[in-house]
């Protein structure tokens, strides 16, 4: 992690001592002038990782741009829970058009701002994993390829949550969803499928790509701020646990996000112009089982006879990430 050389974890907890950080590094949320972009009163479930991620990301972007921000939102939980007519939780100019076109709508906004000489106003597009990796993928790739001046943020909860937890191309192998049922010889989602959109984003040679989780909100803020320092197409893929869709306890959202990273299942890194520039190291590798067990979507792996082989295959995925990204400290 490039921005925070010192670790302030208190013994037995993972709380970062905000007051111990110098002002520059303190969370935007700790500042009086935070914008509350996604304000209270929205209808997200308790412990919703997406709501948390969006709140931090957009407030950080507001902070970075001096509140000169417009957002385009794809259809999905974030859109639905934030704007039940006639209420809106958004304190920023915000538009929802369709499920699959947020990136293109944002391109249009950016073009309008350019032609009107409002270059100081910046544009964000945001959507869930389904709106990003599946139905919105064409528009996303087009926006990347044209290098339009848009930061796209994907809130990845690994399924179509808004429609009742169906499989997307970001759903992990073995996970139960409403369309990858925990039945049959190979319960849950199949192995060998899925789409790695951060890698695909990097293949477009865009200025900045990063992944983050809601377990490390400082890191998310840092990456959003950094992204706003670039012009052109940028992509941040945020891992956001969904208690409802994953069958997890509301209070475990942060824990699961941390475990996803610490197991190596979700590598956290930054890349500039197609090259990885930094990775968030794993403090000590944790077996994937610890991450899988608390989630009902993986419950079929832990029946009377644990599906050791399947768990081992998931462990292989984590190990491969650890190796590929060099996630382990040399010392560890």
């Amino acid at each position: 992690m490039a921005f925070q050389p010192v670790k302030f974890y208190q013994t037995g907890t993972f709380t970062v001592g905000n007051r111990l950080l110098d002002e520059q590094q303190r969370s935007v949320q700790a500042q009086e002038e935070r914008s509350n972009s996604l304000n209270s009163g929205h209808r997200a479930c308790q412990g919703c990782g997406e709501a948390l991620g969006a709140r931090y990301a957009i407030d950080a972007a507001m902070h970075a741009t001096g509140n000169q921000l417009i957002a385009a939102n794809a259809t999905g939980c974030l859109e639905v829970f934030s704007t039940p007519y006639p209420e809106s939780s958004w304190q920023i100019p915000w538009i929802h058009s369709l499920f699959g076109n947020a990136a293109a709508v944002a391109s249009g906004i950016a073009a309008a701002l350019r032609v009107k000489g409002r270059g100081e106003v910046r544009v964000i597009a945001q959507g869930g994993d389904g709106g990003t990796t599946d139905i919105g993928f064409g528009c996303l790739s087009g926006m990347f390829e044209r290098n339009d001046d848009v930061l796209y943020i994907c809130y990845d909860n690994e399924a179509y949550m808004n429609t009742g937890v169906q499989r997307s191309s970001a759903t992990p192998p073995a996970a139960r969803t409403a369309t990858t049922m925990a039945v049959g010889a190979q319960p849950g989602n199949v192995f060998g499928q899925g789409k790695n959109v951060p890698a695909i984003a990097m293949a477009h040679d865009i200025p900045y790509v990063a992944t983050a989780t809601v377990a490390e909100l400082h890191d998310l803020e840092y990456k959003v701020k950094k992204a706003m320092g670039f012009h052109g197409a940028r992509y941040i893929h945020v891992f956001v646990p969904c208690p409802l869709g994953w069958g997890a306890a509301s209070q475990d959202t942060i824990k699961l996000a941390r475990l996803a990273k610490e197991t190596g299942l979700f590598p956290v890194f930054e890349a500039e112009h197609g090259e990885v520039t930094s990775v968030s190291k794993i403090r000590r590798p944790i077996p994937v089982e610890e991450y899988l067990r608390p989630q009902k979507r993986f419950a079929h792996l832990f029946g009377q006879e644990p599906a050791a082989e399947v768990i081992a295959r998931l462990q292989t995925i984590a190990d491969r990430n650890i190796k590929k990204f060099g996630l382990l400290d040399a010392a560890a």
């Binding site: 417009i70 385009a72 538009i95 058009s97 369709l98 699959g100 076109n101 293109a104 709508v105 944002a106 391109s107 249009g108 906004i109 950016a110 073009a111 309008a112 701002l113 009107k116 064409g138 528009c139 087009g142």
Partner: peptide
């Protein structure tokens, strides 16, 4: 689809 979507964004931005 992108053409009309870009148009939507641009028009909404004035």
């Amino acid at each position: 689809f992108a053409a009309m979507s870009v148009a939507i964004g641009a028009s909404a931005a004035g």
